[in-house]
Structure formats: structure tokens, C-alpha cells
Design a protein around this nucleic acid. Structure first.
Length: 133
DNA sequence: CTCCTGACTCAGC
DNA sequence: GGCTGAGCCAGGA
């Protein structure tokens, strides 16, 4: 990652689009799912990155909260590719099995050491930089 | 309707 | 340099 400099982006964002009349089903959850599903294999991202992309950077918790639903959402969402900004598998405890998350990551070629992704910076995938293109 | 919690993050000490 | 507190939004009781 060139720079994970978190600037005070005041970009107004499309997340306001969630207020589309009638489409109440499309909460930011769907946006989060969409982003997570677009994560290339062998890559990972952070809640903050997604939140930043969605324009809710101040509320990275909501991304994690969305993940909670994503875990049981269908089609399945690769929530294992989403970790906290430290690259730590903070949500592994929510995968049913404490080791399930790192196993899934391992299948993607992600090496996990002590609940933390090895070379996280290299594996990091920023939607704001990749999807925004 | 009000209160609480939550898979995060940043700022402060 | 590690720990603590506060802020954020949304959903459930």
C-alpha cells in the first residue's frame, strides 16, 4: 500500500443513495457485501477501508456490524477477508469456529500467524483505490 | 419510543 | 509505546 494515510475525506458519498425510495432493503449492508464480494482472491481489507469507501469512515463499527449479518447472508460473503486495521482476525470468533476464518484465508493464500495476517500491508486491498478507478 | 450493545478507529495519557 | 476513553450508526429488546 502506497499510503494508508487516512485523510479527513469529506466526500459526500453515495451512501446517501440508500435512501432510495422503496429500496429500503438496500441498506449499507448490501453495499458492504458488494465490496467484500469484490475483494480479489488472496487479498484482504479492513473495516475502515470499506467504511471509508462507503463514506462512513467514522463508523467502521457499522461495517463490522454488517459483517455480522453477512456471516449468515446469502450468497455467502467472504467476511474472512475483512479484518481490522491491524490485520488481526478480530471477527474469527464469530465464524462458528475460531479457526474457520484463518482456514478460509489460508485457502486464499493468506498466511495467518497468531490471529494476525502476515504481510497484511502487502495483502491489503483498498476499495477506495481499486474500485474507485 | 428509549436504552444498550457491537467483528472499529482515533486521540489522549 | 501500550492502555483507556469517546465517537460513530444501526438494529434489537
Amino acid at each position: 500500500m502506497k499510503a494508508k494515510k487516512i485523510l479527513p475525506v469529506k466526500k459526500n458519498n453515495k451512501e446517501a443513495s440508500s435512501k432510495i425510495s422503496g429500496a429500503k432493503e438496500y441498506s449499507f449492508f448490501e453495499d458492504v457485501y458488494a465490496v467484500v464480494r469484490q475483494i480479489p482472491k488472496g487479498r484482504v481489507t479492513s473495516y475502515g477501508a470499506i467504511a471509508n469507501y462507503l463514506g462512513t469512515k467514522l463508523s467502521a463499527r457499522m461495517v463490522g456490524w454488517a459483517m455480522n449479518a453477512a456471516n449468515k447472508a446469502k450468497p455467502k460473503v467472504p467476511a474472512q477477508r475483512v479484518v481490522n486495521r491491524n490485520g488481526m482476525l478480530s471477527g474469527k470468533h464469530h465464524f462458528g469456529s475460531p479457526t474457520l476464518m484463518e482456514e478460509l484465508l489460508l485457502k486464499d493464500g493468506i498466511v495467518v500467524k497468531e490471529d494476525t495476517i502476515v504481510n497484511f500491508k502487502e495483502k491489503f486491498w483498498d476499495p477506495a483505490s481499486e474500485l474507485s478507478l
